[in-house]
Amino acid sequence: MFDDLTELYHQLLLDHNKSPRNFRVLPDANRIAQGTNPICGDNYTIYAKMDGDVVQELTFQGSGCAISKASASLLTESLKGKTRAEVKAMFDKVRDLITTGHSDGDLGKVAALSGVHKFPARVKCALLPWHAVAAAVEGRGETVSTESEKE
């Protein structure tokens, strides 16, 4: 029935949406950033515990669509233990993947987001938590927004 949708809603994403990983507040976080999308009402908080240059722990809280939630969940799994520079490099690769459908190098499970590029209206959903984590790791404890309201 929904053949063409299974690329967007990859089985792995549906699973992460239903049972998000690292979905909790991190009490000893030393970096926190928020990502919001005023149109969808997506709203996530990313909690990071940095030890020097390295992401020791990464969790998130919030609500939104299946794509943004699964993306956030995958992100917390894939960035743990990475250095700030590695997070930045990963961010660039993931952005390529989400906007074009491919990207250099092995992205592991995050590759499940490759179907998003065929749904332009949903690109911002998938990218939202990545913007937030970039802000958190760089110590810009701010609210990042995918866009201003327009409907």
Binding site: L5, Y9, K18, I39
Partner: peptide, 29 residues
């Protein structure tokens, strides 16, 4: 358990044009 935008995305692929969001009614939401 299903966000409005996921409903609209999937419905669209079935040919059904719906609207999802705050409908310019944020205070009401």
């Amino acid at each position: 358990g299903v966000h409005a935008h996921d409903v609209v995305t999937v419905a669209d692929r079935s040919g059904v044009a719906l609207r999802g969001g705050h409908h310019c009614n944020q205070p009401l939401m």
